[in-house]
Design a binder for these strands. Structure first.
Lengths: 242, 242
DNA sequence: GTCTATAATGAGATAGAC
DNA sequence: GTCTATCTCATTATAGAC
């Protein structure tokens, strides 16, 4: 099984141009190359989200971006690295906001642990709220992350970026559920992820099943069900027969 | 965004050979073409599961199968159709067994509805039990189904095959949880799917997070946590603020 | 049913003019 | 930074001998 793309390895960054300096022109303006970079990043996000990493070519991406094919390689080196930068861009934002929300919940709870609901909400809201508000580019990003989360081929990539957040929340859940054994908490976190992913990936499946009663895009309603579901599930974890 | 593969459309089956007759030689023997067919099916299952539909070429698949490249097209027509047959083969088995398990649970419950736990178990066990027992080819299949479940590109395919099962269980859950509104049940079913998918897709993420305390391949332990989690989650669904 | 050979196209990446 | 042109190789699929 020849792997054509080697996402497990770190990019040697040998093929990349040294362009971090001169990114701005000192008067707050944006250089031409920056808008090109952004166009490619946005187009890649959208295309990857719709068709998956291997389902889209750089040709298609640059076409959607309205720029020349060669510019993808100039700005990002390889396709692998383009994916990396697509993920990293928004993952940082979500991570920071999740941690802030968790700290906020801790402060609100005072000496006790925050409730499971509060922890789960702190995890889910930062990303899902953006989908609810329809903020530019977040739906494709959510779609993409969902796909990467499942695919064994990409665990290296998603892990580097998403594991730190995970450990914070697993820790919080352990404190909130002292009677649930750690093993169960780890699995519970995976189930939380899985449930969230079903909400994030707009497959249109739920409208087919429900004959239009529920809608994939109605994240608001999904979140209203998701928080009690996950919280109730986590609290039920201790009762497993040993 | 040019879609190179048209999975939404039904295959016209014009490129397929009329080979259903003469599949067996009347004395219970297996013809040469059948073992080739099987080799390709098995190899495709494994490769698709590891790298995704677009991440693997027919060349690689036939190489893994140890047969000539042209035989893939001879036996299956197109790559799309090969995927279809890979899915259908085991999906039928799982569907039948799930329905049987659900009916068994109904019989055991007598006049009342089966418990949520019984319904959830009837859904999860037929597939997960095979992973636990390490039955040939089921892990790659589970991996593949997980990926298709998320990808917007493939909903047409998975829907045709998996929706009938879904509706049976959604119905059972509605009867078991009369106080939970239907909308919530539909979402709950999606969350059930999502949690299961996290168990089925062997990404190795949970061992990284838990430092080896949990293992992706230990489906037995995962199932022990999954049933209470999902059941508890479903029961908690009604409490959503309207 | 299987194989060789090849068609027809698309892929990621790069060299070099501007 | 951008573009044209191209390299090199892989892709799906088929035609035709055996």
């Amino acid at each position: 099984m020849k792997a054509k793309t080697a996402l497990a390895r770190k990019t040697p960054s040998g093929g990349l141009p040294k362009r971090k300096p001169a990114s701005r022109n000192g008067r707050g303006g944006v250089r031409r190359g920056d808008t090109t970079r952004l166009s490619i990043l946005d187009a890649a996000e959208r295309c990857f989200g719709e068709a998956g990493f291997d389902g889209v070519s750089l040709r298609t991406i640059t076409e959607v971006a309205g720029v020349d094919l060669a510019l993808a390689n100039y700005h990002f080196g390889t396709k692998d690295n383009l994916l990396r930068e697509v993920i990293a861009r928004r993952a940082r934002i979500v991570h920071d906001e999740r941690i802030r929300a968790l700290e906020e919940a801790r402060r609100a709870a005072g000496a006790r642990s925050p409730s499971v609901e509060a922890i789960v909400t702190a995890f889910l809201e930062p990303l899902l709220r953006r989908l609810i508000n329809g903020e530019q580019g977040w739906q494709p990003y959510a779609n993409l992350v969902s796909q990467l989360d499942i695919s064994p081929k990409f665990t290296g990539l998603t892990g580097d970026v998403l594991d730190p957040t995970a450990l914070h929340f697993i820790n919080a859940l352990r404190l909130a559920l002292p009677k649930v054994p750690p093993r169960a908490i780890y699995w519970g976190y995976m189930f939380l992820l899985g449930s969230m992913v079903q909400v994030m990936s707009a497959t249109g499946r739920i409208e087919r099943l429900s004959h239009g009663l529920c809608k994939s895009e109605d994240i608001q309603s999904a979140l209203r069900e998701l928080v009690p579901f996950v919280s109730g599930g986590l609290k039920a974890l201790g009762a497993a027969p040993r």
